[in-house]
């Protein structure tokens, strides 16, 4: 069964907003990272759907690009999480606000 394009876009938009909400609301940096992953995947979903809609392979190529991007982002992000935890002994993002003002 082929899911209509609009519905896929709708799901993608919902996922994106969910991720954004996660970033804005959660203070735990692990959850923030996961929310970023969700936002990326929503964008990837939109690409796949768009590629299918216009019969172009570009959407799938973009999907693979986003997949690698997400992988590298996760590794860098986790390294940062480790460093933040070592320095501040907490995972609260608001603790790392020394650059304010």
């Amino acid at each position: 069964m082929i899911v209509p394009f609009e519905q896929v876009l709708f799901v993608s938009g919902v996922l994106f907003v969910l991720g954004l909400m996660g970033i804005l609301i959660r203070r735990n940096i692990l959850f923030v990272l996961m929310s970023i992953e969700v936002m990326m995947n929503s964008a990837a979903l939109a690409f796949v759907a768009a590629g299918n809609r216009w019969g172009q392979p570009d959407g799938q190529i973009m999907f693979i690009l986003i997949l690698t991007l997400a992988a590298s982002e996760a590794s860098v992000g986790l390294a940062l999480v480790l460093q933040i935890f070592r320095r501040f002994k907490t995972l609260d993002t608001d603790a790392a606000s020394e650059m304010k003002g």
């Binding site: 954004l20 804005l24 609301i25």
Partner: peptide
């Protein structure tokens, strides 16, 4: 403009969005 630099990441992300 200094006031906007709160140092809170979530605030930046919200203004971004």
């Amino acid at each position: 403009s200094t006031r906007t630099q709160t140092g809170r990441m979530r605030w930046y992300a919200a203004s971004f969005a």
